[in-house]
Structure formats: structure tokens, C-alpha cells
Design a protein around this nucleic acid. Structure first.
Length: 858
RNA sequence: GCCGGGAUGGCGGAAUUGGCAGACGCGCUGGACUUAGGAUCCAGUGCCCUAAAGGCGUGCAGGUUCAAGUCCUGUUCCCGGCACCA
């Protein structure tokens, strides 16, 4: 093409100011406002069908805490889910795509104190503004199923579940150590303790307090929670590993060591937990945690020991705060008392050591220095006996070699172990556990790191625990018919000291349902993780006021086909949810064992190398992005900038590229749409010009790439790139298309339609506008996804790289289905190649049809 | 310490099975159009070399192979999780 032709063609395309119509330019605000209004006027647009002949698909993003503003992490999370939901709709599924609010929790109470706004009002206002933001972005949620956990319609079912748990013995009350923040004057959950400090008061060290608390017996399900992880093929390995570690199953043996001189001790028996009972003949001391009851008992009578023990406790606590327990130097003190090894009657000293933790196992161990690294270090330091009781199987191969200690592997045989000598470690484990059990001083057991779930919170803004305390009848559950126990609204949340609810006499004073006498209401509220443990079932039947949900309906929708959220919930929310489902299954409420079929954890949004945060001043506001570039650009960029499972590095200029791309699409269709043309739905003819054929081929390759990504690895960044490539080719083709024969018109119409459909999951506003511009009247939301046609995607000719001794030297063009022979000939006849191999000896000739040629010469 | 993930141009990132490294986007350079351009369009853009030719190049060091970002061995650094778990 000459320069003149080019500029003439361009002049035609360029929109000059005088003739500029308002619609000639991509105006995101105009388009998005227009369609947002249309979509809002049709509330059932995204509603899941109740009785559907279509296959169901339940796609869910983790529900947000209504802080009041959406951040980029939300936008990214929801853009992934929204794209998927839209894709599934276009593939004919009955899609359930709901949204709700995890709206109980401490920030509402803080806001109440700071702004003098009641928590409920503050929360509901935040919900309204976040919902408006979501609507503005155009997320396709079925709002008729909206769940707001802080409303009685929802939390009454938390209470109902609590009663069921209590009935089944899965909810119980016990005194235990809890994290206490002196500044908040309340208990903190483990997850709210960061490095030993309060998550909201970085300068405040969390204390331990003994309190009566409600617990849920999640440990009853520990084994199943662990085992079923293997079923979760659609979960990231990383999350499953984290859960396995969290559950921390460990098989071992409990062994009772009696005090050699019990006197009148209340703790005359020390039960130790060991995974290596096979080494028990090598035990040369018993080591106790500083907080062990026997230690406390002894310390009470011995001021010197008291001081030493207190110091050990302080050390452990400090190490926990700093987060490097494990790095502190091992030391301890002898108590002066002795215990008897039940296997051989040996009298061994009892020590207290700072490396023994009260909250794992029994808080007591038998110390076997010869076969445990930690015990070895300790024994060396304090000159305790070290006795080998395991020898390596292969020791005879090198008798002169000194056998190094500690020897900690299981690959050995027992020695110095009385009747158990000669057994392998594995056999000894079984035999010796059996021996202990038959003699009544021990038994095989399984220990978990997982603890029962403490759900009591001394806070106001949560679900009241539906329990009463009657002087006569003790703990009495609130009868089901009296639910919900309503959270009172008129309350001064600034009062400290105990649970805020305890300052509300109207709430506290109640009547005992058993005896009719006076009762005191439980004033603690539930952990908000209770709310999020089952909310996704409520979506299936959100307005049921007879039950949390209808079983049949839930069974239709469950499991969740795809759950999407941040990896920070890998343990807590996701393990509680799994527990809740198992409990509901056991009570016959659902059929499925697991709530979530596939889980996707998206990466964080970072900027300038750090997580976005106010203190760093690197926060990008979605509102600002939407105002500047439009919602389509904002959400599409969040998918384009990185694969969704990786961290996304936000670049201010990057979103401009997306806006530019969307403008290009807009302009192309604006110029080429032919809404009045009756030919637009005509079948695409087979005899296209080569240029048109190229476009058709590119179209089908793009369809394949985009479809594959939705079904496979979800690398939306690459499939958006593929759509960009298609548009780039359309631009190159454009002049040809518009001047060439009318035969191209049906193709051009076809390409534009399919392009718009493929754009719809990523940039729905623009897609709907363009769909209309193309003269289409159908609902794009449920338009069918384009079918990939391999025949149309097939190349006629391909380029084959030709290497000489592994280095690229030339490229030959051959028919796509060229045989090995043909490719070889083409390569050997290539001028550049001929020159290079001239006079050389051909050592090897590799031809990979469709891929390359490599000529190895010498 | 243990378990994951990662390291590729100036930047974000491609390369799905061992087969042309750097798709796509940003940025930059040049050109066109324009009263103007922070709009748009076209072209170029890994590094070295004046250009051609050529050489080098996916954290580092080796290895396997006709061929390695991709597989193997060792190693460094970064991010995340767990951590005296008996």
C-alpha cells in the first residue's frame, strides 16, 4: 500500500471534531450508567431458576465484612467470580451467584464508640454503600438471596444450630485460658492475636486469662476433616497442606509414670504422651511444662522453685509473643522428685523445662536423649544420662564407626529393652503400646494440634448465645420456640468490664423455662466465624422462616461448584465450614460431606512491591478508577495484570491500556456494525478472500483459547491477550473488509458478534452496548457461547524453523499437513541452509512435523 | 529448621506436552494526521556490535539431550505458611 492510500483510508476512519457524534467515542460513564439503570429495573435478571432443566452451577465469592468501602482486593475477587458466572450462563447453566454480608464483629462496636453511631445503623449504612459500589461495577448477583448475618432472620438460625449442637453434646462449657486484650477489655480469638499482640493495638501484649467459655467439639471430626482432604481434588494443595498441619494428627501412646514418693500429692501420676514408646527404656528423665499441675503443686510449697518456674513461664510467654518459641535456649530445673518408669521400674528424675508446652499433648514427656534431638541437647547441657536403646539395622557393616547420637530414625532394632530386645521400631511401637494397655498404665492414642473451637466472645455485636443460667436448674437452653434471642439495640457499648450485654438488665433477667424461676441470660455472643460457616446454605433458600434452609433445595445446589476467595481464610473459615457441613450431614440436614467442590484462592493486590495499605499510602481506590476509566476497565485490568492465583502488581498506567483496548473495540464496532443490514445473520460463505479467511481462523483460535482458560487454568490474562490479538488483526483487516466484496459482510458480522460475546464476562457493560449496536435484541447474558470449530481454525500453511546444530538459521513455509519428507526437502533446499551445510558432514537430521527441523552437522 | 510459591527485557507478564524465548499490555523511539495532542493510526523496541554478519541471553554452577525457561544435581535470594508438636 502506498502512503497515499494509507492516509486516505485513515482519513476516512478518523473522527474529526466537526462531525463528532456523542456516540462516536467510547464513553464508559454514559454506557455504564445507561445499562446499570436497565439492569436495576429488572431485579430478577440474575436470579437462579427454581425448577430448572438446566444443569446447576453454584459459583460463590467469599462474603465481605461491610467495612463501608470496597477495595481492589474485593474487585479482583468478585471480577473472577463474575466472569465465571457469566461464562456459565452463556454455556446454558442454571447459575447461582449470590452475595451477602459478614456483618457482625468488632469494628462496628469501635465505630459506635468513635462516632456515636449504633452498630446496627453503622453496619447497615456500610452495606448500602458497598452494595451500591457492587451494583455500579455491574456484578451479576442474585440480590433476592442476599444474606445479612447481623439480622435476626439470619442469626436466629445460628442460635438454632447452637441448640442442636448442645443437644448432641457438641457444644459444651468449660473453663479455659483465653487471649485477653486489656485495652479492648475483651477476649480475642486466636486469629486476632498477631505476634502475641492485639491486632488493633500493636503496642498491647495479649494476656492469658482463665474464663468459662462455650466450645464446639470440632475435634470429634478431626479425623474426618483430615481424611476428607484427600477427596478435595479441586482444592489448592497449599490450602490442604495448611489444614493438615493445623489439624496436626499424631499417633502415639499415653504412658503413666507414678511418683516414686507420692506423699499426699494430688498429681501422683504423670501421664506423658510419646510417639516413640519403643524408646521408653531409654527414658532418663521426665520433663514437665512449667504450667503442669504437678509443677504448680510443687512450686506452691517451694518458694525457690516457684521463682524458677515463674521465670520459665515468663520466658515461654515472651517467646510466644515474639513468635520464636523454638528458638529459645533450652533449660530447666530439677524438681528434686522422681518418677517410676512403668516398663522397667527405673527411678528417674522429674524436671521442669522451658521447651515443654502445656497446650500440646499432656504437657509432660519422657525424655529419651539418645533418640530425640531436643532431649539430647537438654541432657548434654544438664549432664543427664543418655542410654541408647535403638541400634541401626546395618550397624554390622561398619563396626568400627562410632554410632552417633541422637539416632532419631525409625530404621533400627531395640536393645537394652528387656523382653522387647530385637524388635524393629515399628513392631515395638505396637507391642509396647499393647503391653502398657494390658498392664493398665497406658494406651495407644491419637493427639491433635486442633483444639475445640472456643466460640464465646465478650462482645456486643454478635449472635447472643441462647442459653440461660438458673439457680435451680443450672444451664438451661432457650426453648426453640423462643428463638430468636434478640440482640438489644439500646446499649452503651462504651461500658467496659465483662460483656456489654451484662449491663443490660432487660436482657440479662429472664425466666427459667424449666422451673419458671429467675434465670440469668448468657451475655457472651458467638464468634463471627459461626456466621460464615454455613451462610452459603442459606443462599439456597434465603427467606425460609421455618428452618435454616430447605434440605431438598440445598441438596440440589450443593456442593458449591466453585468458591473463590483470599488464601488468608485457608484455615479458619474453611475448616469451620467443613466441620459445620459434617455436623449438618450427621443431623440429616444435608447429604454432602463437604461444602466446597472446587476452591480458588486469588493472590493479593499489591502496589510498589507492598500490600496496599493506608499506612503505606499506596491504596488505589476502586471508586476513583471507575470514575476515571469506567467499571469495565477496572475489573478487566484486575484480570489482565496477572494470573488470578498470583499477586497482582497494580500499575496506574496499566489500566489505561485496557481502557485504550476497549475504546478500540468500541470504535471498530461503531464503524462496522450494520444493524440494518439484512445480510448480517447470513451464513458465512466458504469462499472467503485469504484476508477474510485469516480473520476467521484467528477468531476460532481465540474462541479456543478463551474457552480453554475458563475450563482449565483460569489464566484470564492470557485469554484477554488473545482477544486483543484478534482485535489487532481486525484493525489490520479493516480497510480490506470494508472495500472488499459483500461476501465479507456476514463474516464481519459473525466475528463482531462472537467478539462481543467473548468480551461479556470481562467487560459486561461495553459488551451489552455493543450487542445493541450490532442490532441484536436478545439478552446477551444468556446468549450461547461461541463454538470452536477446529476446521476453521486450521492453518493452510505453517512456518517451520530450521536449525543447524541447534541454532536457528532459517524458516521455511510448508503446507500445514506437510509430511516429514516434504519438510526435509524444503529445509534442505533453503538457500541459507544450503550455504551453511555446504561441505559439512551431516551427522543427524531431526524433523518434527509441525514443529521444527534440526540439521546436526560437523 | 520444615512445607509451599517464585526469580524471564526498562516494567506487569507470555511460552499449557522438552521444539522459533519475550505473546499481550505498559513505557520508550520514530513517523502520519492535526491549530494543538496527554486523542488516534502506522512502524520499531531483549542485550552487545557503527551497520550487515555474528555473538550473548530466562537468579547462579554443573549435567542429560539433536534441542532446556521447561527435565536432573547442587546452590543463592525473595514471598507466604508452619514451627521445641514430644
Amino acid at each position: 500500500m502506498t502512503t497515499n492510500d494509507k492516509s486516505a483510508a485513515q482519513a476516512e476512519h478518523t473522527q474529526t471534531a466537526p462531525g463528532l457524534e456523542p456516540n462516536d467515542r467510547y464513553d464508559a460513564q454514559r454506557i455504564e450508567t445507561k445499562w446499570m439503570e436497565r439492569w436495576q429495573s429488572n431485579p430478577s435478571l440474575y436470579a437462579a431458576e427454581k425448577d430448572s432443566s438446566h444443569k446447576k452451577y453454584y459459583v460463590l465469592e467469599m462474603l465481605p465484612y461491610p467495612s463501608g468501602v470496597l477495595h481492589m482486593g474485593h474487585v479482583r475477587n468478585y471480577s473472577i467470580g463474575d466472569a465465571l458466572a457469566r461464562y456459565m450462563w452463556m454455556n446454558g447453566y442454571n447459575v447461582l451467584h449470590p452475595m451477602g454480608w459478614d456483618s457482625f464483629g468488632l469494628p462496628a462496636e469501635n465505630a459506635a464508640i468513635q462516632n456515636n453511631t449504633p452498630p446496627r445503623e453503622w453496619t447497615l449504612r456500610n452495606i448500602a454503600s458497598m452494595k451500591a459500589q457492587m451494583t455500579r461495577i455491574g456484578f451479576a448477583y442474585d440480590w433476592s438471596r442476599e444474606v445479612t448475618t447481623c439480622l435476626p432472620e439470619y442469626y436466629r438460625w445460628n442460635q438454632w444450630f447452637f441448640l442442636k449442637l448442645y443437644e448432641k453434646g457438641l457444644a459444651y462449657r468449660k473453663k479455659s485460658k483465653v487471649n485477653w486484650c486489656p485495652k479492648c477489655a475483651t477476649v480475642l480469638a486466636n486469629e486476632q492475636v498477631v505476634g502475641g499482640r492485639c491486632w488493633r493495638h500493636e503496642d498491647t501484649v495479649v494476656e492469658q486469662r482463665e474464663l468459662e467459655q462455650w466450645f464446639l467439639r470440632i475435634t470429634n471430626y478431626a479425623d474426618e476433616l483430615l481424611r476428607d482432604l484427600d477427596k478435595l481434588e479441586g482444592w489448592p494443595e497449599k490450602v490442604k497442606t495448611m489444614q493438615r498441619n493445623w489439624i496436626g494428627r499424631s499417633e502415639g501412646t499415653l504412658v503413666d509414670f507414678k511418683l516414686a514418693d507420692p506423699g499426699d500429692s494430688a498429681n501422683a501420676t504423670i501421664t506423658v504422651f510419646t510417639t516413640r514408646v519403643d524408646t521408653i527404656f531409654g527414658a532418663t528423665s521426665v520433663q514437665l511444662a512449667p504450667e503442669h499441675p504437678l509443677v504448680q503443686e510443687l512450686a506452691a510449697k517451694d518458694p525457690k522453685l516457684r521463682a524458677e518456674v515463674d521465670q520459665l513461664i515468663a520466658e515461654q510467654r515472651k517467646a510466644k509473643e515474639v513468635g520464636d518459641i523454638g528458638a529459645i535456649e533450652k533449660h530447666g530445673v530439677a524438681t528434686g522428685r522422681f518418677a517410676l518408669n512403668p516398663f522397667n521400674g527405673e527411678k528417674i528424675p522429674i524436671w521442669v523445662a522451658n521447651y515443654i508446652l502445656m497446650d500440646y499433648g499432656t504437657g509432660a514427656i519422657m525424655s529419651v536423649p539418645a533418640h530425640d534431638e531436643r532431649d539430647y541437647d537438654f541432657a548434654k547441657k544438664f549432664a543427664l544420662n543418655i542410654r541408647r536403646v535403638i541400634v541401626p539395622r546395618i550397624s554390622h557393616t561398619d563396626e568400627t564407626a562410632e554410632l552417633t547420637l541422637p539416632f532419631t530414625t525409625m530404621d533400627g532394632l531395640l536393645v537394652n529393652s528387656g523382653e522387647f530386645d530385637g524388635l524393629s521400631c515399628a513392631d515395638a511401637l505396637k507391642k509396647m503400646a499393647g503391653h502398657a494397655e494390658s498392664k493398665g498404665f497406658g494406651k495407644a492414642t491419637v493427639t491433635y494440634r486442633l483444639k475445640d473451637w472456643g466460640v464465646s466472645r465478650q462482645r456486643y455485636w454478635g449472635t447472643p448465645i441462647p442459653m440461660l443460667y438458673c439457680e435451680k436448674d443450672g444451664i438451661v437452653p432457650v426453648p426453640e420456640k423462643d428463638l430468636p434471642v434478640i440482640l438489644p439495640e439500646k446499649i452503651d457499648v462504651s461500658l467496659t468490664g465483662g460483656s456489654p450485654l451484662s449491663h443490660v438488665p432487660e436482657f440479662v433477667n429472664a425466666t427459667c423455662p424449666k422451673c419458671g424461676g429467675c434465670a440469668r441470660r448468657e451475655t457472651d455472643t458467638m464468634d463471627t466465624f459461626v456466621d460464615s460457616s454455613w451462610y452459603f446454605y442459606r443462599y439456597t433458600d434465603a427467606h425460609n422462616d421455618h428452618a435454616p434452609f430447605d434440605t431438598k433445595t440445598a441438596n440440589y445446589w450443593f456442593s458449591i461448584d466453585q468458591y473463590i476467595g483470599g488464601v488468608e481464610h485457608a484455615i479458619l473459615h474453611l475448616i469451620y465450614s467443613r466441620f459445620w457441613t459434617k455436623f449438618m450431614r450427621d443431623m440429616g440436614l444435608v447429604e454432602n460431606d463437604e461444602p466446597i467442590h472446587r476452591l480458588f484462592t486469588q493472590g493479593m493486590v499489591i502496589k510498589d512491591g507492598a500490600k496496599m495499605s493506608k499506612s503505606l499510602g499506596n491504596v488505589v481506590s476502586p471508586d476513583e478508577m471507575i470514575a476515571r476509566y469506567g467499571a469495565d476497565s477496572a475489573r478487566m485490568y484486575s484480570l489482565f495484570a496477572a494470573p488470578p492465583d498470583r499477586d497482582l502488581d497494580w500499575q496506574d498506567k496499566g489500566i489505561e491500556g485496557i481502557q485504550r483496548f476497549l475504546s478500540r473495540v468500541y470504535r471498530f464496532i461503531h464503524r462496522n456494525a450494520q444493524p440494518d443490514h439484512s445480510d448480517r445473520h447470513k451464513p458465512v460463505p466458504a469462499d472467503l478472500t485469504p484476508e477474510a479467511r485469516n480473520i476467521q481462523r484467528k477468531l476460532h483460535k481465540t474462541i479456543k483459547r478463551v474457552s480453554d482458560d475458563f475450563q482449565g487454568r483460569w489464566h484470564f490474562n492470557t485469554c484477554i491477550a488473545a482477544i486483543m490479538e484478534l482485535v489487532n488483526e481486525l484493525y489490520a483487516f479493516e480497510e480490506n473488509a470494508r472495500t472488499a466484496s459483500s461476501a465479507n459482510i456476514p463474516l464481519l458480522a459473525d466475528v463482531q458478534r462472537k467478539l462481543v460475546i467473548m468480551l461479556a464476562p470481562f467487560a459486561p457493560y461495553l459488551a451489552f452496548e455493543l450487542w445493541e449496536m450490532l442490532g441484536e435484541t436478545s439478552n446477551l447474558l444468556k446468549e450461547s457461547w461461541p463454538q470452536y470449530d477446529p476446521a476453521l481454525a486450521k492453518e493452510d500453511e505453517i512456518e517451520i524453523p530450521v536449525q543447524v546444530s541447534g541454532k536457528l538459521r532459517s524458516v521455511v513455509t510448508v503446507p500445514a499437513d506437510a509430511t516429514e519428507e516434504l519438510i526435509k526437502t524444503a529445509a534442505l533446499n533453503d538457500d541459507k541452509i544450503k550455504k551453511l551445510i555446504d561441505g559439512k558432514q551431516m551427522v543427524k537430521l531431526i524433523v518434527v512435523p509441525g514443529k521444527l527441523v534440526n540439521l546436526v552437522v560437523r
